[in-house]
Simulated assay, not measured.
Amino acid sequence: MSAISTRGRMHFMVFTESFTAEVMCRFLHRLVGYFGHKVHLVADGRSAYRSKEVRDWLAAHPDDVELHFLPPYSPKLNPDELVNADLKHSLPKQHRVRDQAELAAEARRFFRRRQR
């Protein structure tokens, strides 16, 4: 999962479990820690973003994060979709990852390179 700031700085979190509202709240908590001001996060319509757990987290942190939703099915408006596509094309072609841990390590390497 990643977020791109208006200044082009990328923040990311690699996780191996299923994407749930709990994972989203963990990402929001980490994201807030990077900034000293309110974060306006633009997201697509994924159900985890609209879950009660995420809404409760946002209600408890109104001065930290505000979520803004893109129109339904609008991947061209979401710059993070370009990052996802780049990740898929950047994974090693000759070497297939053997397990989830190796895939997570490759994803972290990719995101660190993109951050630089």
Rank of each mutant, 00 (worst) to 15 (best):
Ser74Gln: 01
Arg114Ala: 11
His40Glu: 10
Leu41Asn: 07
Asn84Ile: 04
Lys93Glu: 14
Arg46Leu: 15
Arg108Ser: 12
Ile4Arg: 11
His89Ala: 14
Glu81Gly: 05
Ala21Glu: 05
Ala105Gln: 13
Arg9Gly: 05
Pro92Ala: 04
Arg116Asn: 11
Gln115Cys: 15
Arg109Val: 14
Arg96Leu: 15
Asp56Glu: 14
Pro92His: 10
Asp56Thr: 11
Asn78Leu: 01
Tyr34Asp: 13
Thr20Leu: 03
Asp63Met: 07
Leu91Ile: 11
Gln100Pro: 06
Ser18Leu: 09
Gly8Ala: 02
Phe27Pro: 00
His40Tyr: 13
Phe111Tyr: 15
Glu22Ala: 15
Ser51Phe: 08
Tyr49Trp: 13
Phe12Tyr: 14
Val14Phe: 03
Glu22Ile: 08
Lys88Thr: 03
Leu103His: 07
Glu81Ile: 01
Asn78Ala: 03
Leu77Met: 10
Ala59Phe: 07
Phe110Pro: 10
Val14Asp: 01
Arg109Ser: 14
Asp44Cys: 04
His40Val: 13
Met1Asn: 04
Arg55Lys: 15
Leu41Lys: 05
Gly36Lys: 07
Pro75Gln: 00
His40Lys: 06
Leu70Lys: 00
Arg108Tyr: 05
Glu53Asp: 12
His68Tyr: 05
Arg108Val: 15
Pro71Arg: 00
Ala101Asn: 09
Pro71Val: 03
Val65Thr: 00
His89Phe: 10
Ser18Asp: 11
Val32Lys: 10
Phe12Ile: 05
Leu28Val: 02
Ala107Cys: 15
Ala21Lys: 05
Leu70Ile: 01
Val54Trp: 06
Arg46His: 14
Gly45Glu: 00
Leu91Glu: 01
Pro75Thr: 03
Ala105Pro: 04
Arg112Ala: 12
Asn84Asp: 08
His40Asp: 09
Phe15Ile: 11
Phe15Ala: 10
Asn84Leu: 06
Arg46Tyr: 15
Arg26Lys: 14
Ala85Asp: 07
Pro72Ile: 05
Arg26Ile: 10
Arg9Leu: 10
Ser5Gly: 09
Pro72Val: 01
Lys52Met: 05
Tyr73Lys: 01
Arg113Glu: 13
Asp64Asn: 05
Arg98Lys: 14
Lys38Glu: 13
Pro62Asn: 02
Ser51Asp: 03
Ser74Phe: 04
Leu103Arg: 11
Phe19Leu: 13
Pro72Asn: 00
